[in-house]
Write a protein that binds this DNA or RNA. Structure first.
Lengths: 252, 252
DNA sequence: CGATAAATTGACATCACTCAACACCGGTGG
DNA sequence: CCACCGGTGTTGAGTGATGTCAATTTATCG
């Protein structure tokens, strides 16, 4: 396959769509990226792709489907760190550690493009914009976790849920998986409870409260934002805009 | 100043000490870094260096002193995302966003070396290892936040506190600010409560409990680990080892 | 030595967890 | 075609942990 066609194969990959919001990628860039990708990997619903304690040294670009990063504690409780959506990267932060510090599991069937971390790093030496892109992605991940920290530490359950729904909606919108004022929830209440540090019954009650206060309408995993402004106020939700990656001035 | 001397000036900077755990840095590398640093900045105790909502576009390498990243909510509650120690970077994640999403405040007098993010990015195009180093730092930050998420979401107050003390100790050790089995707490109980999502009275009670159960001995901000193994078990504490950054194979 | 910050204590109310039961749905195999 | 089953969503009762508020002691720093 020649470079242009190789690049074209990735053109509509949600990861590339997302990346292009930060950097310009030439067909040659995409071809280089395509060259280090091992191929397509499918993982079935409910399968762990990364297991806490084992070595894992790959980057996976999610093409379709949903996953969660989580940690299981001795007492059987589970904390989900973050949900993984199409266009996002599995392998942060686990691939950068000697042994995976967390597990990752597919909550739906999952399609990904995989490459070894080592190969991506080599690409970074050749084309530093890929290193910078990874920085930007990692920093964005940090900021997402920061919002979740605030959620868990200092917001009430109903506020947490509002914030989560709004954040999820924004992230889905960025990769064309949501409508303007609503979306299909890809996650069960058990997953959401483990994201938000709540028990399932309590999460359920909070969903009902959002419904009864006419902030959302939902049935069967279809969520509609009825009163967006109030929901945003309740969840303290503020969209976050990344700066673009500065372009090289001379020594390109 | 010639390159070698310029490099030498940074040699014992705790940030460089920390960075060298991941990458080899030549004197020429250090000289390049030195060249983009604006100079030394001192911030007095209790001063905000970054304010939520304002643009900030710098990286600050902390030389000495302690700070916290935090968010203040409408209801007056404060959540601290992370404490900032010598050798760490102020400006993650705030400098990568159009407007700072969080505030940063000095809890002691602070000495830092500052450079514009733009200049650092230019350096990355010239020397990609700096971009990779920033990736590694950002990913480590993500992992730290992930641990905090688990703390807040699914651990009891006493477990959280144990975990925090152990993590803080490890981070201080890495930059030579702690002894093998103890350290001087740089933070007030109010700060710790806001890190751990607890009220100050409750945090205080948890400190007393750790003391009465003979897990730590502390007086006047001096913390000694009396029964390290039990404390680690209680806090589910596991040290995390980053992989080294792969070296370039050919196209150096 | 006075003033301000930090640590400690106690009483009390309440939120959110636990545990348990039940309803509902879709799929699967007899 | 129907019975069963696992996953999911929903409801209720009871209780203990943890926040709130307020007072008090202790430390720190001009």
């Amino acid at each position: 396959m020649d470079a242009v066609n190789a690049g074209r194969a990735l053109d509509d990959h949600p990861f590339v769509v997302r990346m292009r919001q930060h950097v310009a990628l030439t067909p040659a860039d995409l071809a280089s990226l395509d060259r280090i990708i091992d191929g397509e990997l499918m993982v079935r619903k409910r399968r762990d792709l990364i297991v806490d304690g084992f070595e894992y040294r790959k980057l996976c670009f999610v093409k379709e489907g949903y996953a969660v990063r989580y940690k299981l504690l001795r007492n059987g409780k589970r904390q989900i760190l973050n949900v993984v959506l199409p266009g996002e990267l599995v392998g942060i932060p686990v691939s950068f550690f000697e042994r995976a510090n967390y597990s990752v599991t597919a909550v739906t069937n999952l399609t990904m493009n995989v490459c070894p971390l080592e190969a991506y790093v080599q690409l970074c030496y050749e084309r530093p914009q890929f290193a910078l892109a990874l920085c930007w992605i990692a920093v964005q991940e940090t900021a997402t976790y920061a919002e979740h920290l605030i959620n868990l530490g200092r917001r009430t359950p109903i506020e947490r849920l509002s914030h989560f729904l709004l954040e999820l909606h924004a992230r889905l919108l960025a990769v064309g998986r949501a409508e303007a004022a609503g979306f299909t929830l890809p996650f069960s209440q058990e997953v959401m409870a483990d994201v938000l540090g709540l028990s399932v019954p309590h999460l359920n009650r909070m969903m009902q409260q959002l419904r009864s206060e006419r902030l959302i309408a939902d049935s069967d995993r279809q969520v509609e934002f009825v009163d967006l402004a109030s929901l945003q106020a309740l969840g303290h939700y503020q969209p976050q805009a990344l700066t673009p990656i500065p372009l090289p001035t001379k020594h390109a």
